[in-house]
Amino acid sequence: MSESCTHNCNTCGESCGSREEAQTSFLEPLNPSSIVKKVIGVVSGKGGVGKSLVTSMMAVSMSGKGYKTAILDADITGPSIPKAFGLSDNGVGMTPNGLMIPAVSATGIEVMSANLILDQETDPVIWRGPVIAGAVKQFWQETLWENVDYMFVDMPPGTGDVPLTVFQSLPLDGIIIVTSPQELVSMIVGKAVNMAKKMNIPILGLVENMSYLSCPDCGKQIAVFGESHIDEVAENYGIKVLARIPIDPKIAASVDAGTVEYLEAPWLKDAVDAAEAV
Rank of each mutant, 00 (worst) to 15 (best):
S52D: 14
V153R: 07
F139W: 13
A274L: 12
A106L: 09
K46R: 05
M187N: 14
V36L: 00
K197F: 02
G226S: 11
T159L: 11
K137Q: 10
A133K: 00
K68R: 15
S169W: 06
A253E: 00
N115M: 06
I35S: 06
P246V: 00
G205N: 13
K197A: 05
G48M: 09
T77S: 14
P29K: 05
K197N: 10
E14Q: 02
V233T: 08
Q182K: 09
S2M: 07
V104C: 12
S4F: 07
G78K: 09
M112T: 04
I230T: 04
P102E: 06
P79R: 01
D248I: 05
S105R: 02
T6H: 11
I40R: 02
D89T: 13
V148D: 02
G258D: 03
I132K: 07
E20M: 14
L87A: 08
E14V: 12
G158Y: 06
W145G: 08
G108R: 05
V189C: 00
D231V: 00
N97M: 08
T179Y: 07
I71A: 15
K83W: 05
S228D: 08
D161L: 05
N147F: 06
L268H: 04
A265C: 14
M195L: 11
D123N: 06
K46Q: 10
V36E: 00
P102C: 09
P249R: 00
E235G: 01
N97T: 15
S44Q: 14
F139V: 11
I251G: 12
I230D: 00
E227K: 15
V185G: 00
K46F: 10
G226R: 03
V125Q: 13
V207P: 14
T69R: 08
G174W: 12
V153I: 14
L118P: 07
E264G: 02
D270G: 12
E121Y: 07
M151F: 09
A271S: 13
S254Q: 02
E142T: 01
V136R: 04
I81Y: 01
S18F: 08
I76N: 03
G78M: 08
P79I: 04
A253M: 02
R128P: 12
N209W: 01
V148A: 05
T95K: 01
L72S: 08
C16G: 11
S33G: 08
T69Q: 11
G238S: 01
L172I: 09
S61T: 03
A106Y: 01
G17Y: 01
A70C: 04
N90K: 03
S56Y: 06
I203D: 15
T165L: 09
